[in-house]
Computed example of a mutant assay.
Amino acid sequence: MIHAAIKEAIQKYSGELTELRRKFHREPELSWEEFKTTAFVCEYLEKLGVHYRKTEPTGVIATIEGGKPGKTVALRADMDALTVEELNKDLPYASIEEGKMHACGHDAHTSMLLIAAKALSEIKEELPGNVRLIFQPAEEVATGANELVKQGAMEGVDNVFGIHIWSQMPTHKVSCSPGPSFASADLFTVTFKGRGGHGAIPHACIDAAIVASSFVMNVQTVVSRTVDPQQPAVLTIGKMVVGTRFNVIAENAVIEGTVRCFDPKTREHIENQLKHYADQVAAVYGAEAQVDYIRGTRAVINDEESANLVQKVAAAAFGDGVLYNEKPTMGGEDFSFYLDQSPGSFALVGCGNPEKDTQWAHHHGKFNIDEDALTTGAELYAQYAWAYLNN
C-alpha cells in the first residue's frame, strides 16, 4: 500500500516544499487572478515532464501517465488567496500584497501537490494508471471547481481526492471520516420595500427598518422550530443596510446572509421557509419583499470506501496515532462539485501548534501553518494515488 520511494522523495524534497509554500505565501493572488501562480505551476510541471494545459482564465489541469494501464485518480489543490490583511508582519515570508493574504492555507495545498507530483513522476513507470492533477482557482468564491469540471478536469476520472490543511487540528494529524465533511453553503439577499417619509410622521409611512428587524428576529425560528434538531443547520444574517438619515423613515432595507447544512431536503426546506417568512413579515406591515437565493457549494460527503482507504494509507504511512476524528464543519468547500462527477473523499491535515503560534482560525489575519505538516500532506496526496491505483 505504501511506496517507499514516495516517502523517501517527499523527505528529500522537504526543504523545497517549504520554500514553495513561502513563495506562494509572499505572493498571494485573489480568485480568478492567479496568473503568476498558474504560470509558475505550468513551468514547474514542464520541468517534470508532466503534460498539462492551462484552464481559462487561470488554473491548470495535468496528467501523470503511468507506465501500465489502469484507472485514473484525481488529486486537487486550490490556489487562491483572500482579501485579508496579513498581521504576521514579522514573518520573513509575509505577504507583499497589501490587503491580500493566504489566510486559509491554499499556498500549502498548491505546494504539497507540486511536490507530490514530483515524487509520483519519479515512479510513473510503475503506476498502473494515471494521476490527474487539478490546480484549481477561485475556491474562495465557490466557482472554481465547477468551472474546471466544465473545462474537463474530471473527464475519465474514476476517483478524486483532496486535502485541506487545518489549524484546528494538531500538526500531522489526519482526519477523513465517511459521510458529511463540509456543509453546503448558500447565499441569500432579502430586499424589503416600504414607504419612506419624515421621522416625525411615522403614521404616513411603512418603516422598512421595522420590517427588516422583525424579519431578522423571526427568521431564526426557521432552524430552531421548523428543522429536525438532528439535522444540523445554520442560518446567519451577516449584513443589513437600512435607511439614509437619522430623521428619515427608511423606504428600503437590504439583508444578506448564508445558509449551511448537510441534508439536501433540509436545504430545500430552509430556502422555501426563508421566502415564506419574508413574504409574511412584509405582509404584516404592508411592505413588499423580494428574496434572491443563490445555491453555492453542495455538501462535501466523503465516499465510505475512499475515506476508509485514506485512513488505511495514513495509518500505514505515519502510524495509527496519526488518525484524528474531526467533527464535520459548517464551512463550505467547492470540492463537492468534483464529488458530483466521481466517488472520492476530502481529508484534513492538522497544522495547529500553539508553540509556533499556528492555532489561529482560518481567514484570520494571523493565520499561519506549522510547516512540519507540509510533508504529511504531500505524502498523503502521493501515497493515496498509489494505493488507489493498486487497490
Score class of each variant (00 low, 15 high):
173 K>P: 00
168 Q>W: 09
134 I>H: 12
121 S>Y: 06
119 A>Y: 11
172 H>S: 13
221 T>L: 00
162 G>C: 05
115 I>E: 01
129 G>C: 02
214 S>Y: 14
138 A>H: 12
118 K>R: 15
155 E>G: 02
161 F>C: 02
185 A>K: 10
110 T>G: 02
118 K>N: 05
110 T>V: 14
114 L>H: 14
242 V>R: 15
189 T>N: 07
142 A>I: 15
132 R>N: 00
131 V>Q: 11
217 M>L: 15
231 Q>C: 01
212 A>N: 12
233 A>P: 08
211 V>I: 08
137 P>E: 05
180 P>C: 02
244 T>S: 15
155 E>L: 05
175 S>G: 03
248 V>N: 12
253 A>R: 14
150 K>Q: 14
115 I>D: 06
200 A>N: 10
199 G>Y: 09
217 M>A: 14
152 G>M: 09
163 I>W: 11
230 Q>Y: 13
111 S>E: 07
235 L>Q: 04
246 F>M: 12
203 H>L: 01
124 K>V: 01
209 A>H: 15
175 S>V: 04
176 C>T: 03
157 V>F: 10
152 G>A: 07
166 W>E: 00
197 G>H: 13
212 A>E: 08
227 V>C: 09
116 A>D: 08
239 K>Q: 15
131 V>D: 10
132 R>Q: 15
182 F>A: 06
142 A>N: 12
144 G>D: 06
185 A>H: 11
153 A>P: 08
235 L>G: 06
198 H>E: 01
136 Q>G: 01
209 A>G: 14
139 E>M: 04
183 A>Q: 10
168 Q>F: 07
128 P>K: 14
185 A>P: 01
138 A>Q: 10
236 T>F: 04
217 M>Y: 13
199 G>C: 05
233 A>Y: 04
151 Q>V: 00
160 V>P: 00
153 A>E: 07
239 K>A: 12
197 G>A: 08
169 M>P: 02
227 V>G: 01
203 H>M: 03
186 D>V: 04
129 G>L: 03
159 N>V: 06
180 P>E: 05
